[in-house]
């Protein structure tokens, strides 16, 4: 019989398979990115200027003690109720100058979102986890109001179905095709109408 070796396997397409897999993994893998709560610290102020007098009703005090217990406006509170309480305080609109507020217009709560200040005080023994939880809830309260406002004024400016978070994301997103300058204006307007005034007490 004639000599016959086994035929060689054609490996020419191996590279194609390899690249196919490579591209598959490239597309499906997401690189983890750090995220967190952005804050801006107040600059150190050495000047002797008297701080402006703020009416007690415009301050929403949040105290976090060393056992991670909350005291909000001199009342003990559970963390899950904090967001709602903060929204109610910010949204009160006591002096009637805030047309977009839907609060109770109570005379014992804040005048308008621009004057309303949330004051947060924590103990040295407070755990960081609890502090972040409180920060998160307070930021959430602002975001609730900003989202609501965005849904109100967005459609008039041509950005319907977009809440504040989505507006900010779109503004950052390079692939978003809308009018970024106009969007920035809307974002700035909302930020001006509902400013984040969160002050922290430093001993």
């Amino acid at each position: 019989m004639a000599k016959r070796a086994a035929p060689e396997v054609n490996a020419g397409s191996m590279a194609d398979i390899a690249f196919l897999l490579l591209i598959f993994f490239l597309v499906t893998t997401t690189i983890e990115k750090d995220s967190g709560i952005n804050r801006k610290l107040p600059p150190i102020d050495d000047s002797e200027v008297e701080p402006p007098i703020i009416k007690q009703k415009n301050i929403f005090t949040v105290l976090l003690n060393k056992n991670d217990q909350l005291l909000v406006e001199d009342e003990p509170m559970q963390i899950k109720d904090l967001r709602k309480a903060a929204v109610e305080f910010l949204d009160n609109g006591g002096d009637g100058s805030c047309s977009y507020c839907q609060g109770k217009k109570s005379s014992s709560s804040s005048d308008n979102p621009d004057k309303a200040i949330i004051s947060l005080k924590n103990d040295r023994e407070t755990s960081y986890a609890a502090y972040i939880a409180v920060q998160n809830e307070l930021v959430a309260a602002y975001n609730v109001l900003r989202n609501r406002r965005a849904l109100q004024i967005g459609p008039q400016k041509g950005f319907s179905d977009m809440d504040f978070i989505k507006m900010q994301n779109n503004h950052k997103d390079v692939r978003w095709t809308g009018n970024k300058e106009k969007l920035k204006e809307v974002i700035d307007q909302i930020k001006l109408e509902i400013p984040q005034k969160l002050s922290e007490v430093v001993e």
């Binding site: 967190g36 610290l41 107040p42 040295r124 023994e125 986890a129 972040i132 001993e203």
Partner: peptide
């Protein structure tokens, strides 16, 4: 998450002193 706020407050105060005001609590 188990750290206490004392040390965090101290670091924040140091950051204010050198005017590094933009911070991010990474979570």
């Amino acid at each position: 998450k188990e750290a206490n706020m004392g040390i965090v407050g101290d670091v924040k105060q140091e950051l204010r002193k050198v005017n590094a005001l933009k911070i991010n609590y990474t979570t």
